[in-house]
Amino acid sequence: MDLIAILGSVSIFTAGFCLCVGASAAGLAEGYAVSSGLTSLAQQPDEAGSISRTMFISLAIIETSGIYCFVVAMILLFANPFWQYAISAATK
């Protein structure tokens, strides 16, 4: 296998793996957050506004780690900084 094939397969595998771990971990964490948010919402319906606002903000902060994984996967797939090097090494 030459350099381009290795680089391409490693990039695709890493992007998929990154999205897999990122999505499942962020989904699990958000599930916990929503579950405890809904529990407290059922216990104290009067505080619905405050609880749901805090819940949404914490969801967004948790989601950031998943979004980071997504951005890294997109960079690996579509804007890989090492492609230029591999192509120049291959044409040499």
């Binding site: 967004a60 902060i61 989601e63 950031t64 979004i67 980071y68 997504f70 951005v71 997109m74």
Partner: peptide, 16 residues
């Protein structure tokens, strides 16, 4: 910085 990446990533994922 995380705010910037979060907004960008969410909108970009919708587009993709």
């Amino acid at each position: 910085g995380a705010m910037a990446v979060r907004l960008f990533g969410n909108v970009l994922s919708g587009v993709i």
